[in-house]
Computed example of a mutant assay.
Amino acid sequence: MQIAVFSARPYDRRFLDEANQRGAAEQDFAFVYFDASLDLHTATLAQDCDAVCVFVNDRLDAPVLQALHAQGVHAVLLRCAGFNNVDLAAATSLGLFVARVPAYSPEAVAEHALALVMTLNRQTHRAYNRVREGNFMLDGLLGHTLHGRTVGIVGTGKIGVATARIFKGLGCTVLGHDPYPSASFAGLGENVALAKLLSRADIVSLHCPLTADTHHLINDASLAQMKAGAMLVNTSRGGLVDTHAVIRALKSRRLGHLAIDVYEQESALFFQDLSGEIIDDEAFQRLMTFPNVLVTGHQGFFTVEALQEISAITLGNLADFAAGRACANRVEAG
Rank of each mutant, 00 (worst) to 15 (best):
D35L: 05
V331T: 07
V101C: 02
D61A: 06
F31M: 05
D50C: 10
G169L: 09
R59K: 15
I153M: 10
R13G: 04
L65H: 06
F270E: 03
R165W: 11
S236P: 07
T92L: 05
H69E: 01
L116Y: 14
A25H: 15
A333C: 13
G334F: 07
A212H: 00
G256V: 06
F31C: 04
Q47T: 02
R22A: 14
L78R: 08
T44P: 05
Q272P: 02
A323T: 02
A36I: 10
R132K: 12
N219P: 09
N57A: 07
Q225I: 15
I153E: 11
T145G: 13
A333D: 12
P63N: 07
Q2S: 12
L258M: 08
P106G: 08
G297H: 07
Q27C: 08
I218N: 03
K227Q: 05
G169Q: 13
F185C: 03
N234C: 05
G276M: 00
L318H: 12
R13I: 03
H215G: 02
V161N: 03
L60T: 00
K158G: 13
N317S: 13
D61L: 08
A183F: 10
H41L: 09
A70P: 03
P209V: 03
Y11L: 02
G176N: 12
Q66H: 09
L255G: 14
I166V: 08
N84C: 06
M226E: 08
L318V: 04
A127S: 14
I247E: 01
T124K: 13
C53E: 01
A201M: 07
H125R: 11
F83S: 01
G23P: 09
L210N: 09
V331I: 02
S205H: 09
D28V: 13
R330S: 08
V246H: 12
Y11D: 02
I159C: 12
R126H: 12
A212E: 11
L255D: 12
H144L: 09
H112A: 00
Q2H: 15
A91L: 09
T42L: 06
H177D: 11
I166T: 05
E107P: 08
